[in-house]
Simulated scan of single mutants.
Amino acid sequence: MTIDLNTMLAILAMAVATIATRQAGLLVGRLLRLSPQAEDILAAIPPSVLMAVVAPTAFATGWAETAGCAVVALAATRLPLLPAAAAGVLAVALLRAYGL
């Protein structure tokens, strides 16, 4: 296997850009004082994005996947995103295992 120099440079440039963007966000975030309303709005963004990604699955697949999407939606109201997604995956796996 050979490594193409252009590909490696592109990967490194993307990594640097990603790290710089995240670090800049952290630095700017420390300087800003947000109102409680703005903090509530920002807290609602991750579950909204998760639902935007998961919702098409609910309408394009079978009952097990639709129920799994509902589990994700309910779990996302109380849990962080990763456990909510894991709960949905577990629900789909169990429903498929039992033939639903």
Rank of each mutant, 00 (worst) to 15 (best):
P47A: 02
L31K: 08
L79I: 08
A87D: 07
A60V: 08
R96M: 05
L74S: 03
F59C: 06
T66R: 11
D4L: 05
I11E: 10
M51V: 01
A10W: 12
T66N: 09
A60N: 13
L95C: 05
G29L: 00
L9V: 14
V72D: 01
L95F: 05
A55P: 01
T18C: 11
V49E: 05
L50N: 14
A38F: 01
L32A: 06
P83T: 08
T2L: 13
L27A: 14
A70V: 12
E65G: 07
I41K: 15
A84Y: 09
A85G: 11
G68A: 07
A73Y: 08
A60R: 10
A91V: 07
S48Y: 07
I41V: 15
T57G: 06
V16C: 04
A44E: 05
A52K: 14
A97S: 12
A15Q: 02
A91K: 07
L26K: 13
L90C: 03
V49T: 09
A70N: 02
G62I: 05
M51Q: 01
P36M: 11
N6R: 14
L9C: 13
T2Y: 12
E65I: 01
G68N: 02
L95I: 00
A24V: 12
I19G: 01
A10K: 15
D4N: 15
A73L: 10
A10E: 15
W63Y: 12
I19C: 11
A55S: 13
L5Y: 07
V28G: 04
A64D: 06
A76I: 00
L74N: 04
A73C: 06
A84V: 12
A38K: 03
A20S: 08
V71L: 15
I45D: 10
R78E: 04
G99Q: 01
A70W: 05
A93D: 09
L42M: 07
G29K: 04
L9R: 15
A15D: 10
P46L: 02
A93N: 11
M14I: 05
V71K: 10
L32Y: 06
V89D: 07
G68R: 03
P47M: 06
A97C: 01
L26D: 12
L34Q: 11
P83I: 05
L9Y: 15
W63H: 13
A70P: 04
T7Y: 02
A10M: 14
W63S: 15
R78N: 04
V92Q: 00
Y98M: 11
L81A: 15
V92A: 00
R30C: 01
L42S: 08
V16W: 05
A75M: 05
G29R: 01
L90W: 02
T66L: 09
L31H: 03
R96T: 05
P56G: 04
L12N: 00
A91C: 14
P80H: 04
Q23W: 12
V28T: 11
G68I: 00
D4Q: 14
A15F: 06
